[in-house]
Amino acid sequence: MTDWIKRWQEGKIGWHKKLPNSKLIEFITCLKLCKNSTIFVPLCGKSVDMLYLLEKGYRIIGVELSELAAEQFFKENELEYSIKKTDQFIIYYAPNIQIYCGDFFDLNAHDLKAVSAVYDRAALIALPADLRQEYTQHLYSIIQAGCRVLLLTLNYPQSQISGPPFAVNQAQVLSLYKNGFDCQLLQCFNDLENEPKFQRANVDFIEKATYCLHKK
């Protein structure tokens, strides 16, 4: 995880996008949200997807290892914020949003008791294979029954280019979430033409998939 902090310090954050993710906009209805619903965004960085969700009238709880990312989110979006500390987290907060700076695995069900949906654009695919099962199990343990998850993944020949983001295919998603979640594949397509980094590496394909999960 020190590499993650170093990437933020050096500004090597190629995963960060300046516009809201098109799949979030297209498929957010699968979360069946009410106005003022609270959405959990794991490994949130300074994603403008959170700003999009705020502007839609939702509440946000994010978790992020880098304090620099949290600071940049609020400052770049001109949001006045405050800071409070707990035993395990430094929490940056403003109206309708809290970003917990610390280890995702230190979150508990009480921290997320208000959450009715999860938006995972870059958490699962940011983790190496040996952490993914632990991640999905911990996520299951800290969200309420009935909670829905909008999950975005990438799949490509991992032998042709190293992650992160790491390749996670449909079979792996189904295996990771089979205990406790219903899983629906919403979309999967090859988007190599829009990924110059993967083109330069001569990768054969890059599939982008969107899933809707439902905690039983």
Rank of each mutant, 00 (worst) to 15 (best):
L152E: 09
S116W: 00
G102F: 04
E71Q: 15
Y52K: 04
S37A: 14
I161F: 10
Y100S: 12
F40D: 01
L33N: 06
C44P: 01
A69M: 12
F166Q: 11
G45Q: 06
F189Q: 14
S162D: 15
G11V: 10
Q72Y: 09
T210M: 10
N190A: 10
I97L: 06
P20I: 02
H16M: 03
L19F: 10
R132M: 08
L33D: 06
V203H: 02
K84W: 00
Q144L: 13
D120K: 10
A171N: 14
D182M: 07
I25H: 03
F166V: 08
E76C: 01
E64I: 03
L213K: 06
R59A: 11
I13D: 07
C34Q: 13
I161T: 14
N21L: 10
I97S: 05
I91Y: 09
N194R: 10
K18R: 06
C147G: 03
K46G: 13
P164K: 07
Q199A: 00
H214C: 11
F205L: 12
R200A: 15
Q187N: 11
C147F: 03
L53Y: 02
L174G: 10
H138S: 08
Y140H: 14
Q144R: 14
W8E: 08
F89E: 00
L150G: 07
A126Q: 05
Q170Y: 05
V63N: 09
T136V: 15
L152Q: 12
T2Y: 13
F181N: 03
I13C: 12
Y156L: 12
K17R: 14
F73I: 08
L152K: 05
F105Q: 04
S22Q: 13
L154W: 04
G62W: 03
V41L: 13
P157Y: 04
S22I: 15
Q72P: 04
Y211T: 05
Q172Y: 02
T153E: 09
S175V: 00
L174D: 12
Y81K: 12
V168Y: 05
P42G: 07
Q98F: 02
R200L: 14
S141R: 00
Y52L: 01
I143G: 03
K113H: 12
K75G: 01
Q9E: 15
D191K: 12
D3T: 15
R200N: 15
N179Q: 12
K18T: 08
K6I: 15
I83Q: 11
L192A: 09
A114F: 08
N169V: 09
Q199D: 01
C30K: 11
F73Q: 04
K56F: 00
N179G: 07
R59T: 10
Y156R: 05
N108Y: 00
V168S: 07
T136Y: 02
D87K: 11
L51H: 00
Q137H: 06
E76R: 00
A167V: 01
L154N: 04
I99K: 07
N77K: 09
I25Y: 05
I142K: 07
H138Y: 00
P42C: 07
K215Y: 06
T2C: 11
D87R: 07
C101S: 15
A69L: 12
D182H: 13
Y81F: 15
I28V: 13
S162T: 14
Y135E: 05
L33S: 06
F74H: 05
R148Y: 03
P157Q: 04
L213Y: 08
V203A: 08
E195I: 04
Q88D: 14
T136Q: 04
E193Q: 14
I13P: 09
E67F: 04
V149R: 02
